[in-house]
Design a protein around this nucleic acid. Structure first.
Lengths: 158, 158
DNA sequence: ATACTATGAACATCAAAGATAGTCAAAATG
DNA sequence: CATTTTGACTATCTTTGATGTTCATAGTAT
């Protein structure tokens, strides 16, 4: 049984296909459609549509209220510099890494296989250390990989 | 009396017949089917479905959770399984990593970009630890990436 | 008209409950 | 003694519900 979160996530993503870079939804309406609590929608948005994932959310309450989901199409270069210099600090969680990697993949900065490789490299299995150190190590590994991507030149893979 | 472990093992293997290269199971459901403790399933997976045996496991907790058993492709990259299980021990030097990565690149198992990514992930910059620990960490990171490669499905990157 | 208030229609937040899987050590088995 | 089996405890993810906040509109008083 596929959890609702996944269905809601892909439903929203399908709304964003067709070249739209943003959609407005009504929280209650969506919740009714999926027969779930409205806060479930909030949960999905806050776990799957964060800036790390490449989205921003705006909303308005009251009559005629809405939630607007905006997909950011990043210019790879500047976004990479931001990720390397600002976003990754001295430590980063597995979840946050995954979000960042997915976002790069969605924006075609990296291929599916490269994304897979990167997720493996920052996985908890790869980093076999006390929890307290894992996130610090992860930051180093992710940063090194992003630097490699940033340094790629015109030369294409075959 | 055949021990449960064996029954569970062959049951899972039968699920993987029919050309499937992976199956998803639910731990509790399987445990109920065999009338055993759920942790028994974990035990079977961790003793009989390891990379040594040519499998990798992924899982997800929470509602709709599952355990996915992936059978690694054997013949084409059987060299990969050797690398994963024998060549990489509990520690490995940067030079040895680079040699392995270059070899995979030369044999077109991975692209130039993937090779670059992997070298970055196991570089001394990425792994910011006292020298005594670097090689141990590197082993974990390299192994995880090789496992990802071994588990890649037929579909190629474009 | 203008200001104030009331009402209802949204969304936000947060904590609790539910649903899985993971870990680890002790007990049982052979 | 090694392997299997169990169970208590933990970690993570999902779902729900109670409560709070904000906004638009309609009503009311001046």
């Amino acid at each position: 049984m596929r959890p609702l979160t996944d269905s809601i996530e892909s439903f929203i993503k399908s709304l964003l296909e067709e070249g739209q870079e943003q959609v407005d939804v009504q929280r209650n309406e969506l919740a009714q459609y999926f027969r779930c609590a409205p806060s479930q929608i909030t949960y999905v948005l806050s776990t799957r549509f964060t800036p790390d994932h490449g989205y921003v959310i705006e909303s308005r309450r009251g009559g005629g209220g809405y939630i607007r989901i905006v997909r950011l199409r990043e210019s790879p270069g500047s976004n990479l510099l931001y990720l390397i210099n600002k976003r990754i600090g001295s430590a980063i969680s597995k979840q946050d890494c995954d979000a960042i990697i997915s976002q790069l993949n969605d924006n075609d900065v990296i291929t599916d296989n490269e994304a897979g490789l990167m997720r493996s490299a920052v996985s908890n299995d790869a980093i076999n250390l006390p929890i307290a150190f894992k996130d610090a190590l992860r930051a180093g590994v992710l940063r090194a990989m992003l630097l490699q991507i940033a340094g790629r030149v015109g030369r294409e893979d075959e």
